[in-house]
């Protein structure tokens, strides 16, 4: 049980990947909702200290599906918060490619009771989700310490395909751009991203943002997020 959830990468010393290890250990002792946490492990990747970042790959070594997501920051910061499903305790890492062509790798060990990838989504047991598939709720913050923050949640089961009888069904891409169609960030999402994913981004200033996304079955969405 380390006290500092922030892990400095060995190689870069400036890439922070924040994963709440204490929460994982605490949740191991959760007698009742022992499946809740491995399905919603919070991960924050902050590569803002690395200068111009072109690409970030997030992966979990021991997950049955190793790749979690990739993101390509444009005018938004090289910062992303999200949640993942983990099947067992594993290192979770972020590899960051900067404009000079160098890859910087950071990561941390996550303890979890596991089972996150082979437990059915809540949606799989409740048909109501179909009416809300790809519905987006979002908000931007314009003042204070978190000015420029954008959070969005997409209703999607994010089924991994590893549960018997439930095929893989997940969001593949979300593109965020401003009102003049300038890209903020592109996010590629894979099966381990949590059900009904929530993303936290950081822009320089709040403004009208367009979010466009699609899943692996060709369902898409396109919404405006007002500041």
């Amino acid at each position: 049980m380390g006290d500092a959830p922030t892990i400095h990468a060995n190689m870069s010393r400036i890439l922070d990947i924040v994963i709440d290890r204490k929460a994982q250990i605490a949740e191991m002792n959760d007698q009742v909702t022992n499946l809740l946490n491995p399905m919603q492990v919070p991960v924050t990747v902050d590569a803002t200290a690395l200068g111009k970042v072109l690409e970030v790959i997030v992966f979990a070594d021991f997950n049955p599906i190793v790749q979690i997501l990739r993101f390509y920051p444009a005018s938004a910061s090289a910062y992303l918060g999200f949640r993942v499903k983990l099947q067992q305790s594993t290192p979770v890492r972020a590899a960051v490619r900067t404009a000079d062509g160098v890859w910087h790798v950071g990561g941390t060990w996550v303890n979890t009771v596991g089972g996150g990838c082979t437990a059915p989504s809540a949606a799989a047991a409740a048909p109501e989700w179909q009416k809300q598939l790809n519905q987006v709720s979002a908000r931007q913050w314009q003042s204070g310490e978190l000015a420029g923050r954008l959070r969005l949640r997409v209703v999607h089961p994010m089924d991994t395909g590893l549960v018997a009888g439930i095929p893989a069904f997940h969001l593949q891409e979300i593109r965020l751009s401003d009102s003049s169609d300038q890209a903020l960030m592109r996010i590629e999402t894979f099966e381990p991203v949590s059900e009904n994913p929530v993303f936290t981004l950081q822009q320089k200033t709040a403004g009208r943002v367009k979010a466009i996304g699609r899943d692996n079955n060709g369902n898409d969405f396109s919404v405006w997020i007002e500041p």
Binding site: D20, K22, A23, A26, E27, N29, D30, T33, L36, N37, Q40, Q135, V136, S137, A138, R139, R151, L152, R153, V198, A211, V223, W224, I225, E226
Partner: peptide, 25 residues
């Protein structure tokens, strides 16, 4: 206290978060 707080965040924060985010069109 801290341990239960953290567990409770996992149980209760998603609903609070959903309430705080507005519907996007």
């Amino acid at each position: 206290g801290m341990r239960e707080y953290r567990r409770s965040v996992g149980h209760l924060f998603p609903a609070a978060e959903q309430e705080a985010l507005g519907h996007a069109h």
